[in-house]
Design a protein around this nucleic acid. Structure first.
Length: 563
RNA sequence: GCCCCCGUAGCUCAGUGGAUAGAGCAGCGGCCUUCUAAUCCGCUUGUCGUUGGUUCGAUUCCAACCGGGGGCACCA
């Protein structure tokens, strides 16, 4: 019996109780407000195993509208629950908690369910048929990807996997800001490096700039030698080839990190294709455009922004937000009803104007466009904060991370904490390549399930018999309990856009598995015969491996069979 | 000044109103002739930033304040 089925049963019992109270003349009008459907009957797995397999606090919530005291409600419901075939016992505790213990066979049946479902175990239908555009990383092509961008690469890709697990049709998208003054600075910096001049005051000074200059020279195949070009054409050459080189490098590095995008969208193309102009005309038609001080503005204050925004500057150059207008419109025209954008906290100031823009187009903020703000990554060295600066060239890149700990540990450490938390990463700890990273704890648990399965095969233990009623050891019911939560966890992670919950969850699974392994043998000891219990436990072993494998898959982390 | 995020064990962090607040790491002490000791078991540590409020119940929700980070352009 799944928790969802249990909720259904409990919900039905509450409805019956409500009808009876109405017949007894009680005004139960408030009941529907507290309890609209079975989803509101929450069940939790108690920390304390003495409190049963599942516990519900529903009695406290519905006591008032039913004209009962919480414990009276609990008593009424307990009788009905005990009559269910899968329920072994029901206890009422504290102020009115209902503690439910399931029949071992009912709980144990899950092991087979999971093995048979395989990779599909845990997937759901929250977003079946929904097209979701997820834009993340989108770092400017003016340098290598630094740690901030890497965090979003890990989290964004994992979120995409989680959303896909819930049936969404996800497009991973990377927006290249290749149209503005940042790019000009980049071009001037590369040109300066080529000419042996000092880095421009507002330019980029990293060592990679010189490399780019060399590569541009090597790649250049124009008829006139670069050195003979007029300075403007030189700069344009270094811009176009240099940006192209950065594109290629960024794509390759991300690929090596296990992150591939479906669409690399160039800001330039919005301006060239006229998408920006179309968006502006659309907004003008809706009456949200005005001119002042020689510039063209979008009246975002109409929609709650704290000031209006310039979209075409008085010098005729489009402001950054004009690209966003065209881009958003383009995404909508490509059929995405849900657009997600992941941004660092240093961009949170955009949210107001972006939402205003959405509303100006007649869409619904936070529905058609949702902006996920994540906090920054702080790097520490010897316990002291390390400032990263692309201009000064003191940046820690994706490569540095992967070189230090590898892809799996790197991705895992970035994805296992909430995006709301500013992450501290100590470079010295990374460099140690220790097993302090919990990813090894999880991977080891997975490798162990594989090892047990291999040895079981060799010992003649096969997944033939399945007698779930034999899975009665405390560590067994605890493991089954946590495995059962996986589908809910995936749905929650998708709904809240919080993939870190998957990481925390599989760490918990790994812990329960290790304890089970310690207590319950799958393979008979010495000359003992293979029994039904061994064979049944093999199902549980394999089910655990499957869940960890599925969970690691959602994080984009490998599940090794040996370690 | 205004806006966003955070404040939980020595450290890094979980915990979307429930029972005695957790994990990893660090520290101390135990288990390998037995399916992988990267595991497991035991011990130790808390004004959940502060003060109010909401309610059967608040680490969780609300308000104010304190502390830390980030942001408030005709830059991107």
């Amino acid at each position: 019996m799944t928790p969802a089925e249990l909720s259904e049963s409990l919900f039905a019992l509450i409805q019956q109780l409500g009808e009876r109270r109405r017949a007894e003349g009680i005004d139960t009008g408030g009941l529907d407000l507290v309890l609209a459907n079975a989803g509101d009957v929450t069940l939790e797995r108690p920390r304390n195993r003495d409190h049963g397999d599942w516990a519900s606090s529903i009695a406290m919530k519905i006591a008032k509208p039913l004209g009962y005291k919480p414990r009276e409600v609990a008593t009424e419901l307990a009788a009905g629950l005990e009559a269910l075939p899968d329920v072994a016992s029901v206890e009422i505790a504290g102020p009115g908690f209902i503690n439910i213990r399931l029949e071992a066979a009912s709980a144990g049946a899950l092991a087979k369910t999971i093995v048979e479902a395989g990779p599909a175990y845990g997937t759901g239908h929250l977003y079946d048929g929904i097209k979701i555009n997820l834009e993340f990383v989108s770092a400017n092509p003016t340098g290598p990807i630094h740690m901030g961008g890497v965090r979003w690469a890990a989290v964004g890709d994992s979120l995409a996997r989680v959303l896909q697990a819930e049936g969404a049709d996800v497009t991973r998208e990377y927006y290249f800001n290749d149209h503005g003054s940042q790019i000009d600075r980049f071009a001037r910096s590369v040109l300066a490096a080529y000419l042996g001049e000092h880095t421009p005051e507002d330019g980029y000074g990293g060592a990679y700039i010189g490399d780019i200059a060399d590569q541009v020279v090597a790649k250049y195949d124009g008829t006139t030698p670069i050195a003979d070009l007029p300075r403007e054409e030189q700069q344009e050459t270094f811009r176009s080839i240099g940006v192209d080189l950065m594109f290629t490098e960024i794509k390759e590095k991300l690929h090596g990190f296990g992150v591939d995008f479906d669409v690399y969208f160039h800001e330039d193309s919005l301006h060239e294709s006229g998408a920006v102009n179309r968006a502006i005309e659309r907004l003008r038609g809706l009456g949200h455009i005005f001119e002042a001080d020689g510039a063209i503005w979008l009246r975002t204050t109409t929609f709650g922004d704290d000031r209006d925004r310039v979209i075409i500057r008085s010098n005729g150059e489009p402001a950054y937000i004009s690209g966003d207008l065209g881009y958003y419109l383009d995404k909508r025209e490509r059929g995405f009803d849900q657009n997600l954008i992941m941004l660092g906290a240093d961009h949170h100031g955009y949210v107001g104007r972006m939402m205003a823009m959405v509303e100006a187009f007649g869409d619904v903020p936070r529905v058609n466009l949702q902006i996920l703000i994540g906090q920054m990554v702080n790097l520490l060295k010897d316990g002291e904060p390390l400032r990263m600066s692309k201009r000064a060239g003191t940046i820690v890149t994706l490569d540095d991370l992967v070189d230090a700990v590898g892809v799996d540990a790197g991705r895992y450490s970035l994805v296992r904490s909430s995006s709301d938390t500013a992450l501290d990463i100590d470079l010295d700890l990374l460099g140690k390549h220790s097993n302090e990273n919990p990813v090894f704890y999880v991977q080891y648990a997975h490798a162990r399930t594989c090892s047990v399965a291999r040895n079981a095969a060799a010992a003649g233990v096969e997944r033939t018999d399945f007698a779930p009623e034999l899975l009665v050891h405390d560590s067994e019911s605890a493991l089954l309990g946590v495995l059962q939560e996986y589908p809910r966890m995936v749905a929650l992670a998708a709904e809240l856009r919080e993939p870190h919950r998957i990481a925390r969850y599989i760490e918990e699974v790994a812990g329960y598995y290790h304890r089970w392994y310690d207590n319950c043998r799958v393979i008979p000891l010495g000359d003992e015969p293979v029994t039904e219990l061994h064979r049944t436990r093999l199902w549980l072993n394999d089910a655990t491996g499957q869940v960890i494998r599925n969970g690691l898959g959602l994080l984009g982390v490998a599940a090794p069979e040996r370690m």
